[in-house]
Simulated assay, not measured.
Amino acid sequence: MQIENHKEEVPFAHYCERFAALDPQEAAARTGTPFENGAFRITLLGHPYRITHPEFSISGEGGTALKSLPAQTFLMRWLLEGKQTAGSRDFLTFREMPWGELYIQPFTGRVLKRAAFSFGTRLEAFRAACTAMGGLPLQAGDAGFEFTLLGNYRLRMLLWAGDDEFPPSAQLLYSANFVDGFAAEDRVVAGDLLCNEIKANL
Rank of each mutant, 00 (worst) to 15 (best):
172 L>Y: 06
67 K>W: 07
137 P>A: 07
103 Y>W: 14
104 I>A: 09
112 L>M: 05
96 E>L: 03
56 F>Y: 15
51 I>P: 12
151 G>S: 09
38 G>T: 12
132 A>G: 14
74 F>Q: 07
41 R>V: 11
139 Q>A: 13
99 W>S: 04
152 N>C: 13
122 R>N: 12
80 L>W: 03
146 E>A: 11
106 P>V: 02
79 L>W: 07
153 Y>N: 12
46 G>Y: 01
85 T>H: 08
143 A>S: 15
86 A>N: 12
167 P>H: 03
76 M>Q: 05
113 K>W: 03
75 L>P: 01
69 L>D: 05
47 H>D: 14
52 T>F: 07
50 R>P: 03
73 T>R: 15
66 L>G: 07
103 Y>L: 15
157 M>E: 08
58 I>E: 06
153 Y>I: 01
53 H>K: 12
144 G>W: 01
46 G>I: 07
125 A>E: 15
64 T>C: 10
167 P>T: 02
138 L>G: 00
44 L>T: 07
83 K>E: 08
150 L>T: 07
148 T>R: 14
166 F>Q: 13
179 V>Q: 15
179 V>H: 09
36 E>N: 12
132 A>Y: 10
180 D>K: 15
121 T>N: 15
88 S>F: 05
88 S>E: 09
141 G>K: 11
44 L>S: 06
164 D>H: 07
159 L>E: 03
138 L>N: 01
109 G>Q: 14
166 F>S: 12
37 N>T: 09
85 T>W: 00
134 G>P: 00
87 G>V: 05
119 F>R: 10
171 Q>C: 04
64 T>L: 11
160 W>I: 02
80 L>P: 10
123 L>Y: 00
36 E>W: 06
65 A>Y: 06
131 T>L: 12
90 D>W: 10
105 Q>M: 04
93 T>H: 04
125 A>N: 11
56 F>R: 14
160 W>S: 09
95 R>T: 01
132 A>M: 06
155 L>D: 04
181 G>N: 11
164 D>N: 13
54 P>V: 11
69 L>F: 13
79 L>T: 00
85 T>C: 14
163 D>F: 03
106 P>Y: 10
179 V>N: 13
43 T>P: 04
60 G>K: 06
138 L>F: 08
69 L>A: 06
176 A>T: 05
102 L>W: 11
101 E>A: 13
40 F>P: 14
74 F>W: 13
135 G>R: 09
110 R>N: 10
137 P>H: 05
108 T>W: 06
175 S>V: 08
36 E>R: 15
173 L>A: 08
90 D>I: 01
175 S>I: 04
38 G>M: 13
156 R>M: 04
38 G>V: 12
177 N>I: 11
170 A>M: 02
166 F>A: 14
170 A>Y: 01
94 F>L: 02
84 Q>I: 08
53 H>R: 14
172 L>E: 03
173 L>E: 06
70 P>G: 03
108 T>Q: 11
121 T>R: 15
118 S>Q: 13
99 W>M: 12
103 Y>T: 00
148 T>F: 00
83 K>V: 01
130 C>P: 00
132 A>V: 02
112 L>D: 00
48 P>T: 02
114 R>K: 13
115 A>K: 05
103 Y>C: 02
104 I>M: 10
